[in-house]
């Protein structure tokens, strides 16, 4: 279960609009803080192009690709997570 779907599952059907506003803000603010905290601006494009390549072979959803840049010591790790349609998770690490 992804980070986003965790929050989605928390949503009550009859939640007030203020509660929805708070939930949406928590998600978007967390994402934007990550982006602003040093994510290079080519990441979205890289994600798009990688997704296009994957899609040549496997039909996956746009949201099934997650990319993250981490720092491990003095080494930057680009982590790519693709959730395949049958539910098994493939993970590739590029250094």
């Amino acid at each position: 279960m992804s980070f986003l779907s965790y929050f989605r599952s928390q949503r009550k059907k009859n939640a007030s609009s203020a509660a929805r506003a708070k939930e949406r803000l928590q998600i978007i603010v967390a994402r934007e803080r990550l982006q602003c905290a040093g994510g290079p601006d080519y990441l979205p494009m890289l994600q798009d192009e990688l997704l296009a390549v994957v899609r040549k072979y496997i039909q996956v959803d746009r949201n099934a690709v997650r990319m993250q840049l981490d720092q491990e010591g003095d080494c930057e790790v680009l982590e790519l997570n693709i959730t395949l349609p049958d539910g098994t998770e493939t993970s590739a690490r590029v250094r």
């Binding site: 007030s16 609009s17 203020a18 509660a19 506003a21 708070k22 803000l25």
Partner: peptide
């Protein structure tokens, strides 16, 4: 419940 509270 129509507006974010100050705590939110």
């Amino acid at each position: 419940g129509e507006m974010l509270s100050v705590e939110d």
